[in-house]
């Protein structure tokens, strides 16, 4: 009796170690090609907690896309495992949405039907699909474009639809592989704000790859810097800038300090990649 009571007290008071939303455990990847084996990813471990916005920076070819594709279930790891809420993932799933750098909208579907594509696959009713699509159209600022086809949209608009389409499925984690990489600087800045708004609205966990140091700081709770190939986590840089973030934060002193730190980390690795 007493022992049981004591046990209860202990159990209830032990600070719960929050299991991370996403855990990457010793994940490695070797590609076999005609010209031999390429180690794209050395055993890498890191974790992302619920609702966290993590950006990944790293020199070209260091395995950023590879990690993301493994998390998405589009690529199989050679070693290690990926856990979501403690469950190992095998293959793609509805709990992980993805946005690619290339515009991957369905060209034969309207903006609205693109956004509700995942819901339609699940057999959600037309009415509910319309409601969800309307919500996201508004969130990404594309009301009035629901009947347009992708070919009639600019690059930035296409990526907004791609983000809305991924979010409409209500995944736990949103994976983004240089989604703004093909956009011009101005559009890019606007897209960053659109994405932050969508993130604040939906409270998703986001893993976001970029080459752009400013982008990585502006968006992130933490920036993960990777080493040159074979890639692994080099450093985790928490970003303590206030939320919600305004565009003006890019001119602040703290921002400049983060930028300097990250630039020198990246430079080190990029030099290694060259030599």
């Amino acid at each position: 009796m007493v022992i049981q009571a004591a046990k209860n007290i202990i159990e209830n008071n032990v600070p719960q170690v929050k299991t991370p939303k996403l855990e990457i455990k010793e994940v490695g990847k070797v590609f076999k090609t005609k010209s031999g084996e390429t180690t794209a990813l050395e055993k890498t471990s890191f974790s992302v907690s619920d609702g966290e916005f993590v950006t990944i920076l790293g020199p070209s070819g260091c395995g950023k896309s590879t990690v993301l594709r493994i998390v998405a279930g589009l690529e199989e790891a050679t070693s290690g495992q990926v856990l979501i809420d403690g469950q190992e993932v095998n293959g793609p799933g509805l709990d992980r949405g993805m946005v690619f750098q290339s515009y991957t909208l369905y060209p034969w579907l309207t903006v609205k039907d693109n956004i509700s594509f995942g819901l339609k696959l699940k057999g959600v009713s037309q009415k509910e699909r319309d409601d969800v699509a309307r919500h996201y159209l508004q969130l990404i600022g594309l009301e009035g474009f629901e009947k347009h086809y992708p070919i009639q949209l600019s690059g930035g608009m296409k990526q907004r639809v791609a983000i809305a389409r991924a979010l409409a499925n209500d995944p736990k984690i949103l994976l983004m592989d240089e989604p703004f990489g093909a956009l011009d600087a101005q559009t890019r800045n606007i897209m960053q704000e659109v994405l932050l708004k969508a993130w604040e609205d939906s409270k998703k966990t986001i893993l976001f790859i970029t080459h752009d140091v400013e982008e990585s700081i502006f968006l992130a709770d933490s920036v993960y810097v990777m080493t040159a190939r074979p890639g692994r986590l080099k450093k985790k840089v928490p970003i303590a800038l206030e939320r919600p973030r305004e565009f003006s934060v890019k001119g602040s002193v703290e921002f400049a300090q983060y930028k300097e730190e990250l630039l020198s980390l990246i430079r080190e690795e990029s030099l290694k990649a060259i030599n």
Binding site: G91, L94, R96, M98, F100, T104, G118, L121, N169, L175
Partner: peptide
Amino acid sequence: EVSYTLGA
């Protein structure tokens, strides 16, 4: 690939 991630 994107269709797989959307649950196809």
